[in-house]
Write a protein that binds this DNA or RNA. Structure first.
Lengths: 110, 110
DNA sequence: TTTTAATATCGTAATATTGCGATATGGGAA
DNA sequence: TTCCCATATCGCAATATTACGATATTAAAA
């Protein structure tokens, strides 16, 4: 079908899945890494750094923006994108607290 | 096209993106949470806990197994699935080290 | 105003994903 | 062996994703 069932899952799970899905693409993950490592937020050269056409990069950017992973402001005819720390931390917390729940020794020896 | 470009990205990014993509689905994320919280690894009742048909759950499980997020052993005619701590920690490390690189104050005020 | 540069959106074709029923598989029980 | 039971796989239909070129948008520059 291609349609993802959503009802029956908690909204927390659904929301986190959406965020992780957005990150689950080489280009988008590379964009995030680039934004993290770039000294400033100007990202006009993102297209040069990715093996993709400008329109494709723009589409990936809007997908990241849609789930709140990045924020952008228009300054002149350039766009400054930057990481949304709030959402990024949310992911961090999600994995850290989940990991804590893996009681050592309870994992089976498969 | 539907085909994801891979060449031009580091294998690290590509691999991590595959893992995150696997997690980027409500059912699969719910499966992971269930496996983390379940006292033991027997998961025959996973189907009862998810609003999906048995065949669909099985498909999601194999997808998680494909990227190494879970491991499974056959004991009799039951299957025990459990989290692969190694891969799970890899994700944890990825986000924690990435976050460290976000120098406070450098994030722009968008 | 016209041009230019940067980014966004549209239209499309190709491929991937999702979900389910039906069926296969494989081991234990009768 | 034959019958269950749990899980995996297949086949299909519907939808989603991806990538790109072409085009639109928007604001600064000339």
């Amino acid at each position: 079908m291609g349609i993802t069932k959503v009802d029956g899952f908690t909204s927390e799970v659904t929301q986190m899945a959406e965020i992780l899905k957005a990150l689950g693409h080489p280009a988008r993950l590379a964009i995030m890494e680039y934004l993290i490592n770039s000294p400033d937020c100007i990202n006009g050269d993102l297209v040069d750094h990715l093996p993709l056409a400008q329109s494709t990069v723009s589409r990936h950017l809007s997908e990241l923006k849609k789930v709140g992973l990045i924020k952008g402001t228009i300054t002149g005819n350039c766009i400054s994108y930057c990481i949304n720390d709030e959402v990024w931390n949310k992911i961090k917390v999600f994995f850290n607290t989940s990991s804590d729940q893996i009681t050592p020794g309870k994992s089976c020896a498969c």
